[in-house]
Design a protein around this nucleic acid. Structure first.
Lengths: 191, 191
DNA sequence: CGTTACAGTCAACACCGTGTTCAATAATCC
DNA sequence: GGATTATTGAACACGGTGTTGACTGTAACG
């Protein structure tokens, strides 16, 4: 995050930042559909017309926030993808990123969040899995079930982590994921 | 599904059914936020005021459809919960239910769907897992990560299944889930 | 420092979906 | 068949939307 091109006018940066803060705050209180441009700009203490200078509506605004978040995550993961073995370092990096953006991630994954973000995140994780395990495209279909299971599973695990306030360390979480991938799931740990 | 109490007037059943069909159809075309009561009732070919006789707004209508769906799923699963071993039969039952409600499930889990439904489904699956594996409440927190991983993972798997049009049999899918729970995840199957 | 460019403000506007009402009409139930 | 209840159609005020134009103030740049 905080990767805005410095070419933007300082006033523009300020405006967008205030809007994003107001939105994150409001989303903690009510559903997205109940948030109006009117109250958003009132909370951000600016003119309603200013909003329309940058966004079409509230949903499109959230979408652009999501895409920004995911593209910076993508950058970070790709940096660590070259290393060997990639899994451990990459997972730690992933969890650290989430911890850094805890507030907005919490909102986006909550029941007040956005299912589009969930699907975009799912796709990103799946792509990384395919990169790491190097399945060729013609065999891809065969493993779709596993990739979907793992990608959604990871998101669930992150959700559980955030619910607890991210108290466990990223290292510990990464170890746990590796453990799960190596076959230490419920039945084994529960006995 | 199709569990409406027969005490309702035939006209009421007809109205609700038409509205539900119109909504499912529209949700396949556009986001929920862009669907108005006006166009919904026009599609269902009825007076706009009739909608308000039964629902507050579009979102509340979807919510009641979801809850109905989940409560009938819950009933079915509980019936099979007493059997031993419960896993296999229960999973098959789950997948059959999804296949029967393929259209609405597809919409609800898609990127045009509803994240609330996803969370409600997640909670339902987690509850069943806890029932089956019988973890006492004080140890529950310890296994939260695993339950979330499995519950979300199953939803991802279902999503992948629906994406393929539910061509694989419920039996095969149930076997695959059991396989995953027993530790046959990516690393093993990919080599 | 001063000029130019442009971001933000304020008020006003038509537009449209909302949610509710009422009397009239139609369908269902028993 | 008669009582009951669901649905219709029209009308209404309300409020958020998206856009406009003239203005005011701040930032960027030489």
């Amino acid at each position: 995050m905080e990767n805005k091109p410095r070419s933007e006018d300082r006033r523009v940066r300020r405006t967008k930042k205030l809007l994003a803060q107001a939105l994150t705050s409001l989303m903690g209180q009510k559903q997205l559909k109940d948030i109006t441009v009117k109250e958003l700009t009132e909370k951000a203490d600016m003119n309603r017309g200013t909003f329309y200078l940058y966004y079409r509506d509230i949903f499109q605004m959230l979408e652009s926030i999501e895409d920004e978040l995911l593209s910076s995550l993508n950058l970070i993961l790709d940096e660590k993808l070259g290393e060997t073995p990639p899994n451990e370092r990459m997972l730690i990096e992933l969890f650290e990123f989430i911890r850094m953006n805890q507030q907005i991630m919490d909102v986006l994954l909550s029941s007040r969040g956005d299912i589009c973000f969930l699907h975009k995140l799912n796709r990103l994780i799946r792509e990384k899995c395919i990169s790491i395990w190097g399945i060729t495209s013609e065999r891809e279909g065969e493993f779709d079930y596993n990739y979907y299971f793992v990608a959604f599973g990871c998101m669930g695990l992150v959700k559980a982590w955030i619910n607890k306030g991210c108290v466990d360390s990223s290292e510990r979480l990464a170890k746990r994921v590796n453990g799960i991938l190596e076959g230490q799931l419920i039945k084994r740990t529960a006995t």
